[in-house]
């Protein structure tokens, strides 16, 4: 069996008075891309924030390579090798592309390795190389997403948490970003936990997937199988089988309820 990078058991997180995560368990193995699908408000982003320590959990455990990391400060969790690429990029707007990338390697001391990784990031994202001394706020949305992913790569993460990398990008850009994610996974061996609303791309990119609804995991399995499942096809991929149309659609109950 492959090594387990991330294991979450019965995690519960409150967002103010609201219970946003209701007992989630999941596992990410070394070298995998695992997707978490779900609609708005399903708790996907909350899940990632809980993993990276931006939110505290009230119950359950998060194990990173077997060691508990729940309820620690996010800078500590990041230093353990979790690189969080937050929703909406969140680059440092008034720093240059180069400075943004180097901040990704903040805890590293190996100058040679950092220089090598910088070249690697520039190879994957040539658009960044042309703009090294430009402030990040002047980049386009797609370039900012590349910068956010590249910045995360600079820490040589054990696990990369990707929150909605497709947000606000054109279909062409989405395609190319996910291509790079796949290449990073295959060529650099970066393990990825991917949260995505765009189920089509997410299922194509990932090996396994979990489906979340109102704070809980309702379905999981190999991505290829999930893509074939009736419910996923209808509710997430927007493909309806013949006969289920119009008025009857909303009456149909999902099998997991």
């Amino acid at each position: 069996m492959s090594d387990v990078v991330l294991e979450i058991n019965n995690l519960e997180t409150y967002y103010g008075p609201i219970m946003a995560i209701r007992g989630v368990s999941l596992k990410v193995n070394q070298g995998e891309i695992v997707a978490v699908l779900g609609a708005n408000g399903a708790g996907k982003t909350t899940l990632l924030k809980t993993i990276s320590g931006a939110l505290n959990s009230s119950k359950g455990e998060i194990l990173l390579a077997g060691r508990p990391v729940q309820n620690r400060d996010p800078d500590w969790v990041a230093a353990q090798g979790v690189a969080h690429v937050p929703e909406g990029r969140e680059v440092f707007p008034f720093l240059t592309v180069y400075e943004n990338l180097m901040l990704g390697a903040y805890r590293r001391r190996d100058a040679k390795g950092i220089a090598g990784d910088l070249q690697m990031v520039y190879e994957y994202f040539p658009a960044l190389k042309e703009r090294t001394s430009q402030m990040a706020c002047y980049l386009s949305g797609g370039q900012q997403q590349m910068l956010a992913i590249g910045r995360a790569c600079m820490s040589r993460p054990r696990l990369m948490l990707l929150d909605e990398p497709s947000l606000g990008l054109s279909p062409v850009l989405v395609k190319s970003i996910f291509q790079v994610i796949r290449r990073l996974n295959q060529e650099q061996g970066i393990t990825v936990l991917l949260v995505e609303q765009n189920a089509v791309v997410a299922l194509q990119t990932s090996q396994r997937a979990y489906v979340m609804e109102v704070g809980g995991v309702v379905m999981d399995g190999a991505s290829a199988e999930l893509a074939q499942s009736e419910d996923i096809r209808e509710f997430y991929l927007g493909q309806k089988s013949a006969g289920v149309r119009g008025t009857r659609r909303w009456k149909k109950r999902k099998t997991w309820r």
């Binding site: 990276s52 320590g53 931006a54 400060d73 996010p74 800078d75 500590w76 990041a78 230093a79 690189a83 969080h84 937050p86 969140e90 680059v91 440092f92 707007p93 008034f94 720093l95 400075e99 901040l103 990704g104 903040y106 805890r107 910045r151 820490s155």
Partner: peptide, 14 residues
């Protein structure tokens, strides 16, 4: 500077 521009992202950079 990074922490003043985007505190949460700075945390994520360890």
């Amino acid at each position: 500077q990074a922490a003043s521009q985007n505190q949460l992202a700075a945390y994520y950079m360890s």
